[in-house]
Design a protein around this nucleic acid. Structure first.
Length: 334
DNA sequence: TTGTGTTTTATTGCCTCC
DNA sequence: GGAGGCAATAAAACACAA
């Protein structure tokens, strides 16, 4: 295992990974060294387990630790503080030196707090923590490393859940929009049919009256500056088409007697939105378009795209009412 | 008690940084 | 080139149902 790191320095114990650790000097918590022969003696006398990890663990225990020799009261190999756990635990270690021991609840709590403060471990802090907990600095480092791995896993799970719920809500939104689109399509078809039907009934006589209406409208609309504001407010609030039309009708009725006659009011009739909202010009034949005249249909049937306020997401189909300002604008284009 | 799944401790090999 | 971090993994410890 050439090139494998050698743990030393502030770790308080020089060990190397794998089986090659037989060949290095081992140092215990008190800084005493166990030479190769002593370690070989200790290792050969242990259980028959051939696990490299166990070799590694055992290799961290010095000869003097085993003998209860000088220095520390608490062997690092006994992660449990003797003051906390008494001689029984210590005894347990000596009888089962190959066993992996878990940290005590208090030790883990202490480490958790430290981890919350800073999840990276500077050498000084590692040594201090090790001292406080009666552990090897190496054990503290390993604990932090594993803790970071657990934290990362948890974080990934959280991120995944967040993405999943975000996806879910987006999917619901998308499906709602699809439904809304379908219902709008159906509405468009319905209105188109209605329009075509009416146009057939009405014939050219209506067109002549409409032309007359167009000549008179600009003057009166300009005269009544409140109309635009009123209608604009209504459209921005997402009022129903009928509401807007009725506002318009009211204004017309009160301020402009010219529009109370049958022909004109039919153009703005609440129940008849076909003149205000023409969904698809392509549905009209060229003849029909010609008959209706350029002055009547194009300018006020569709809003200019740049004039539509898309800042508020549509909550229902009524929000697709185009800005009525354009309705007023057409009067200037006549 | 035992089989099985999960958690925790530790090792190994690779990589990056200084 | 050494120190340290990380991913992958091993294995002990633990939890728990049957």
């Amino acid at each position: 295992m050439a090139g494998r790191r050698v743990y030393g320095g502030d770790d308080g114990g020089s060990i190397s990974g794998g089986s090659s650790n037989h060949s290095v000097l081992l140092q215990n918590r008190c800084g005493s060294f166990a030479s190769e022969p002593l370690n070989a003696l200790f290792l050969s006398g242990s259980s028959s387990s051939s696990s490299p990890s166990l070799l590694g663990s055992r290799s961290m225990m010095s000869f003097e630790d085993i003998r209860g020799g000088n220095g520390s009261n608490r062997s690092f190999f006994c992660p449990l503080d003797s003051e906390d756990n008494g001689d029984e635990d210590l005894d347990d270690y000596f009888h089962h030196p190959e066993k992996k021991r878990r940290l005590t609840v208090d030790q883990v709590r202490f480490l958790e707090k430290s981890f919350e403060t800073e999840n990276k471990l500077e050498p000084e802090r590692k040594v201090q923590l090790a001292k406080d907990l009666g552990l090897q600095p190496r054990q503290v480092a390993i604990w932090f490393q594993n803790r970071r791995a657990r934290w990362k896993t948890k974080q990934l799970e959280k991120d995944y859940e967040a993405l999943q719920s975000s996806y879910g809500s987006l999917k619901v939104d998308y499906e709602n929009l699809l439904k809304e689109k379908d219902s709008l399509k159906a509405e468009i078809l319905l209105l188109t049919d209605k329009l075509l039907h009416k146009e057939k009934e009405r014939g050219n006589s209506v067109l002549s009256e409409v032309d007359k209406f167009g000549e008179e409208l600009p003057h009166n609309l300009v005269a009544d500056s409140n109309l635009e504001d009123e209608v604009s407010k209504s459209s921005k609030l997402g009022c129903k088409q009928e509401d807007i039309s009725s506002v318009k009708s009211d204004i017309f009725d009160s301020d402009s007697p010219h529009y109370t006659d049958g022909v004109h009011s039919s153009l703005l009739e609440p129940g008849d939105s076909s003149y205000i909202f023409d969904p698809d010009q392509s549905d009209l034949s060229q003849d029909e378009e010609d008959n209706l005249g350029r002055n009547l249909l194009p300018p006020y049937i569709f809003p200019k795209l740049e004039d539509v306020d898309y800042s508020d997401p549509p909550t229902s189909s009524c929000n697709f009412v185009f800005p009525i300002e354009d309705n007023a604008l057409w009067s200037w284009s006549l």
